[in-house]
């Protein structure tokens, strides 16, 4: 139960809004963080907290692509495939991932480590091709960088090749 494990955070979220229902997305995020995806019992509990019906919660939850109603791999790779990225190689990036991990968009590796999605613009069009893995952005990707990122994630669960705080181009004088 979220209430037992996250009471302080729930109270903090509720204190930000004059109307309770506004806390719905933040609470769904909280549930997703706690359990990896948004489970049905969590949605029922959230409905209780916000005095909503479970269908009201479900209706909102299903609208937003970032809320996973099913489990995803430990690392969710999202490659932007919108035009600006496609102009400079996002389809190639997707193909590399397919070669290296054997998954196409929508699929998860057998060991449940990686899920691949092709997504729409992530506001990194000037530093394409790019991908987001869980919370982190990886930009200006090359095949070599991709290899290092995947190796880092397998070994340590994190990669120092993640980007941000974002600025591009970097001011003259700074190295790229």
């Amino acid at each position: 139960m979220l209430k037992e494990t996250h009471q302080a955070e729930i109270d903090d979220i509720l204190s930000r809004y004059p109307v309770k229902r506004s806390a719905l997305l933040p609470l769904l995020y909280l549930a997703q963080r706690a359990q990896g995806y948004v489970t049905e019992p969590a949605m029922q509990e959230i409905a209780g907290i916000l005095k909503l019906t479970p269908p009201q919660v479900y209706e909102t939850a299903t609208f937003y692509t970032m809320l996973n109603l099913k489990p995803v791999g430990k690392f969710h790779i999202q490659v932007c495939k919108s035009l600006m990225c496609a102009l400079v190689g996002s389809d190639t990036l997707i193909a590399w991932i397919d070669t290296k991990l054997g998954i196409r968009p929508g699929a998860t590796t057998a060991d449940k480590l990686f899920t691949l999605s092709a997504v729409e613009c992530l506001a990194a069009c000037g530093t394409a091709p790019m991908m987001q893995i869980n919370d982190d952005y990886y930009e200006r990707l090359t095949e070599d960088k991709l290899d290092r990122i995947l190796a880092d994630l397998r070994q340590t669960g994190a990669s120092s090749l993640k980007t941000g705080p974002f600025m591009w181009p970097e001011p003259s004088g700074a190295k790229s």
Partner: peptide, 27 residues
């Protein structure tokens, strides 16, 4: 000033969809 995170829907950039979303509804 509060930060409110969206959850992946381009249309929530449209101002009234943004308001719906901020109210905890579909955008």
């Amino acid at each position: 000033v509060w930060v409110h995170r969206g959850a992946g829907a381009y249309i929530c950039g449209e101002e009234t969809a943004l308001l719906e979303s901020l109210e905890g509804k579909r955008g």
